[in-house]
Computed example of a mutant assay.
Amino acid sequence: MEQGLDHSRIAAEPATRRGLSVGVPPLIAESLVVPVVRRFVRQNPGLALRLHEDPSVELLDLTALGEIDLAIVYNVSPRAALQLETVAQDDLQLIGAAHRPPMRTPGPIALAEVLGLPLFMPRSGAGLHGMLDEAARQRGVMPDISFRIDGIAPILSLVREGLGFTCLPYSAVASRIANGELRARPIVDPVLPGVLSIAASATRPRSDAMERFCRCIRDEPILRLSDSARRRPGSASIDEARITGMSTDARRAAPP
């Protein structure tokens, strides 16, 4: 996370008592939440903002109970008490250090090839390991998962050092791709689908602050790149035409 921003909670106490409580999963806390919060705080300097970090399923419970106002969640099932707004299709991608051979080739990579690579996967969170295990089981193979690790940061550190690979949505690693630490290749044959959504109560009215925060999420260039980064067999990596008109930061975040 950016210096000065707490990884689990951000609070800006203003003179006014108004405030907003937002839930975020650890999966996207670094790459996606920092730029969204930065934009929101700059646009709303007099509004208190509190971030609560938990897995997506737990954030749905907190949102339904009214303990947080809304949540950014990944790959969750609909609930009667909640409204889910899809903000990006963000399928799993192979993430690795740029110097490792599989990452030198741009464009999609078949799941069969991914399953033969040494993988570091999160122990929990968004069901990523379960999705990968099920896809492997359907093909009668076992993925080469070297370690299941609690926390995204240690996984990415190991991957950056070239010790292995991981499978994550693009929004989880966009900032590290932008600075050249890592590269991403969309997984195909089959695609391992992922969806980023905003969850809010279906029974309580949305405040103006909630809508302004949702607007910051919808406008985040990383999410447009997440959609662009999805590729099917025969596709190239993100082409420049798809990101024409985006900000300089967004262009830098495009997978190589």
Score class of each variant (00 low, 15 high):
residue 4 G to R: 03
residue 5 L to W: 08
residue 7 H to R: 03
residue 8 S to A: 15
residue 9 R to K: 09
residue 10 I to T: 14
residue 11 A to I: 15
residue 11 A to D: 07
residue 12 A to M: 15
residue 13 E to F: 12
residue 15 A to F: 12
residue 15 A to R: 05
residue 15 A to Y: 10
residue 16 T to I: 15
residue 18 R to A: 13
residue 19 G to M: 03
residue 19 G to P: 07
residue 20 L to D: 02
residue 21 S to D: 10
residue 26 P to Y: 06
residue 27 L to A: 08
residue 27 L to R: 01
residue 32 L to D: 03
residue 34 V to W: 02
residue 38 R to I: 11
residue 39 R to H: 10
residue 39 R to F: 01
residue 39 R to L: 05
residue 40 F to M: 12
residue 40 F to H: 05
residue 43 Q to I: 07
residue 43 Q to A: 06
residue 43 Q to W: 00
residue 46 G to I: 09
residue 48 A to Q: 02
residue 49 L to P: 03
residue 50 R to A: 05
residue 50 R to K: 05
residue 51 L to Y: 03
residue 53 E to K: 01
residue 55 P to T: 10
residue 56 S to Y: 05
residue 57 V to Q: 04
residue 60 L to P: 02
residue 60 L to S: 00
residue 63 T to D: 04
residue 63 T to S: 08
residue 63 T to V: 07
residue 64 A to Q: 05
residue 65 L to Q: 08
residue 65 L to V: 04
residue 69 D to F: 12
residue 70 L to E: 05
residue 70 L to C: 12
residue 73 V to N: 05
residue 73 V to F: 08
residue 73 V to G: 04
residue 74 Y to D: 00
residue 74 Y to V: 03
residue 77 S to R: 11
residue 77 S to D: 10
residue 78 P to N: 09
residue 81 A to P: 02
residue 81 A to R: 00
residue 83 Q to S: 00
residue 85 E to I: 02
residue 86 T to P: 14
residue 90 D to P: 05
residue 90 D to M: 01
residue 91 D to G: 12
residue 92 L to G: 01
residue 93 Q to R: 10
residue 95 I to V: 14
residue 97 A to H: 12
residue 98 A to I: 15
residue 98 A to R: 13
residue 101 P to E: 11
residue 104 R to Y: 00
residue 104 R to F: 03
residue 105 T to C: 08
residue 106 P to H: 02
residue 109 I to G: 04
residue 110 A to V: 12
residue 111 L to E: 10
residue 111 L to Q: 02
residue 112 A to G: 14
residue 113 E to Y: 08
residue 118 P to S: 06
residue 122 P to C: 05
residue 122 P to N: 07
residue 123 R to W: 09
residue 126 A to S: 11
residue 128 L to P: 06
residue 132 L to S: 06
residue 133 D to T: 15
residue 133 D to G: 09
residue 134 E to I: 14
residue 135 A to F: 02
residue 135 A to G: 01
residue 138 Q to W: 10
residue 139 R to A: 02
residue 142 M to L: 14
residue 142 M to W: 14
residue 143 P to V: 06
residue 148 R to M: 11
